[in-house]
């Protein structure tokens, strides 16, 4: 087909499909996106999909069934680079919050009862790097258009994607928003990866943390800051866990150790 173009596959595991939809939401760029790369597989957008060898794959969604484990391993084998896109692929998503297997099992039973699934067995939701090597991460719930187009432009030109090691606060300050923490409102901006353009704070609402934890964030410091401000400890923990997926477990371990 297109010999000189980068071969790309876009795959969806378990999630809201928001990252794939966001790509379709690039209406003005969409025809160019399809022209710039050889998009071999993108089942939300096209039906003539080929599952062959690829240069780059973008994977959204968490791994939540055994079938998905197989699918993901196959994808990894077929491609040079694997990019995790979106909260579910990068940290496991909201569904990865039941980090304790027993807790997960209990809740699974509450929803599905004792019906035995005939098809693929369910798994506790995990980010894709629990099963395969991931080369790059593009966080977001869902990913942001600007960050996606940057990443896409770089990969079609064979350049490594940029990293965004900044919290929401950086953009928030550029936008000259009033800091909500100063007004004693529980805002997760300092812990959360940037990319949304500080959307919530710009609308007078606290950051919920939906981009997931930012690399190098000082979780412990924020935790104690919020505690000092009088927020209930359990509430802070829950709030922090909502969008941190499996990564939150490491953090709580760290706090425990520091307490000792």
């Amino acid at each position: 087909m297109n010999k000189d173009k980068v071969k790309i596959g876009i795959y969806e595991l378990t999630g809201c499909a928001g990252d794939a939809l966001l790509i379709l939401d690039c209406e003005n760029e969409l025809l160019d996106i399809f022209k710039a790369a050889d998009i071999q597989s993108f089942s939300m957008a096209k039906s003539d999909n080929i599952d062959g060898n690829l240069d780059v794959v973008l994977v959204e969604g968490s791994v939540s069934t055994e079938r998905e484990v197989e699918e993901l391993k196959d994808i990894r084998k077929r491609s040079q680079l694997v990019v995790a896109i979106g909260l579910c692929a990068t940290v496991g998503g909201i569904q990865a919050r039941f980090t304790n297997p027993k807790e997960w099992e209990k809740n699974f039973k509450k929803v599905y009862g004792d019906v035995k699934m005939e098809h693929t067995p369910p798994l506790q939701s995990k980010p894709i790097d629990d099963y395969v090597k991931v080369d790059y991460y593009l966080p977001g719930c869902p990913i942001g258009k600007e960050q996606f187009l940057h990443l896409f432009t770089r990969i079609v030109k064979g350049a490594p994607p940029e990293k965004y090691p900044r919290p929401v606060c950086v953009t928030c300050k550029f936008k000259e928003n009033d800091c909500l923490l100063n007004r004693d409102i529980l805002c997760l901006g300092p812990l959360t990866a940037d990319g949304c353009g500080a959307a919530c704070i710009s609308h007078n609402l606290p950051c919920v943390g939906c981009w997931g934890p930012v690399e190098g964030a000082n979780l412990t410091s924020e935790y104690y800051l919020l505690k000092e401000k009088g927020f209930d400890v359990e509430y802070i923990k829950k709030k922090m866990a909502n969008y941190s997926g499996t990564k939150i477990a490491e953090f709580f371990e760290k706090i425990k150790e520091e307490k000792k």
């Binding site: 791994v63 569904q95 809740n107």
Partner: peptide, 14 residues
Amino acid sequence: YEGPRLVERLTVGR
């Protein structure tokens, strides 16, 4: 083929 996400349970206690 989507896996279970247990969204209803995720909101309990919130």
